[in-house]
């Protein structure tokens, strides 16, 4: 039999009400309160109940999470439930915090239930499965039924359907999906077009998400004191590509020492080349400075127009590289640059 662990707050864990909301985390090797309902509905045994006061989790999040993860490290479980939290904001945030941490630490499915008004939904729906729930504990049975039904599908290895069919809040995670009726794209396109022409309702298959735009930083007034780094997504690397950066869909980046170099020497002289598969490499292989302009920067350095060119340039490949990987690599590189006291970056693409 598979095993489940349930997280409840002080109230549903039968410790008490608001007066004991500071209750420190505890774990019990039994089914407490709502955990009994879970046990009835699940194709798994609830072996442990974790209980924590909402205020304790809210004010000492790090400590609470650490304590609970420590409880769980010797517990053998296949699935983790938190809540239902209904419309209770602190409880919802607590379910999210601990759910996210358990997911990351133990890589088991984590499922919760919250009312749409619960702030926990917006914050944590990307991290764990959260199902829409009722306003209050009157909906306890319905809400637990919903999430245990879904939990059972996972436990039994059944095929999971898209979010809108399973019913959990959409998480911004998009995968390709073979339509059951195999309606080809041309039928869907004509259908959508006719609806749009006729002013009928239609549903885009790609609803445009909110854009994550970064504000442009204020200009630097005096460059003569500034250390500037060159960072590229143009795939310029030493000819042996020591960091094995992929030619497309990159997940790796490299940093290469250019101290003492007046310019980047080219592929023919066995120095630098591009491994980027998304553009014609001829010009960059012949002269890598067209992508990473070390030559021009040295000139500026000599003329005193900039303080200093940073001793390393950073490189990855932009083609096919997902925005998420790009953001991660960008953060990692930015951290290095900050640690090295670089004040400005010239980002070159292809």
């Amino acid at each position: 039999m598979k095993k489940a662990v349930v997280y409840l707050n002080q109230f549903f864990g039968q410790i008490g009400g608001e007066d004991v909301a500071d209750h420190a985390p505890e774990i019990r090797e039994e089914k407490v309160g709502a955990a009994m309902l879970y046990d009835q509905l699940l194709d798994a045994e609830v072996t442990h109940t974790v209980i924590c006061g909402d205020n304790f989790m809210g004010s000492n999040t790090e400590e609470a999470v650490e304590i609970i993860l420590d409880f769980l490290k010797d517990v053998d479980f296949d699935i983790f439930f938190a809540g239902p939290a209904f419309q209770a904001g602190r409880y919802g945030m607590a379910c999210g915090e601990i759910g996210k941490a358990v997911k990351e630490e133990f890589d088991v499915p984590v499922i919760s239930s919250m009312n749409i008004e619960n702030p926990g939904v917006e914050v944590f729906k990307k991290d764990i499965y959260i199902f829409p729930g009722g306003h209050s504990a009157a909906k306890m049975r319905d809400d637990v039924k919903k999430i245990t039904d879904f939990g059972n599908k996972i436990l039994n290895g059944e095929k999971l359907l898209p979010a809108e069919e399973e019913g959990y809040y959409k998480r911004g995670i998009r995968h390709q999906y073979f339509l059951e009726d195999e309606t080809p794209a041309y039928e869907r396109a004509i259908d959508m077009l006719l609806k749009k022409i006729n002013g009928e309702e239609f549903e885009s298959e790609l609803p445009i998400p909110e854009l994550d735009l970064v504000e442009i930083a204020p200009a630097i007034e005096d460059l003569s004191e500034t250390t500037i780094a060159l960072v590229t997504s143009g795939g310029i690397v030493p000819v042996d590509n020591p960091d094995k950066i992929q030619s497309a869909s990159a997940t790796r980046w490299g940093k290469y020492d250019i101290s003492g170099m007046d310019r980047l020497e080219n592929r023919d002289s066995n120095n630098f080349k591009t491994i980027h598969a998304g553009y014609d490499p001829a010009a960059a292989d012949a002269d890598p400075n067209v992508v990473v302009p070390v030559d021009a920067m040295r000139k500026y350095e000599e003329e005193g127009r900039i303080g200093k060119l940073h001793d390393y340039f950073y490189s990855t490949v932009g083609t096919g590289t997902t925005q998420k990987e790009a953001a991660r690599m960008g953060k990692e590189i930015a951290q290095e640059l900050q640690d090295a006291n670089v004040q400005a970056v010239i980002l070159t693409s292809t």
Binding site: R188, L206, I208, G320, K324
Partner: peptide
Amino acid sequence: EATGRDGGSQPLVTLDPKADALV
């Protein structure tokens, strides 16, 4: 679309709310 192996990335390189009917 190109949402990455984990499905979490922005689907197209540029997006615009005016593109409101996409297959």
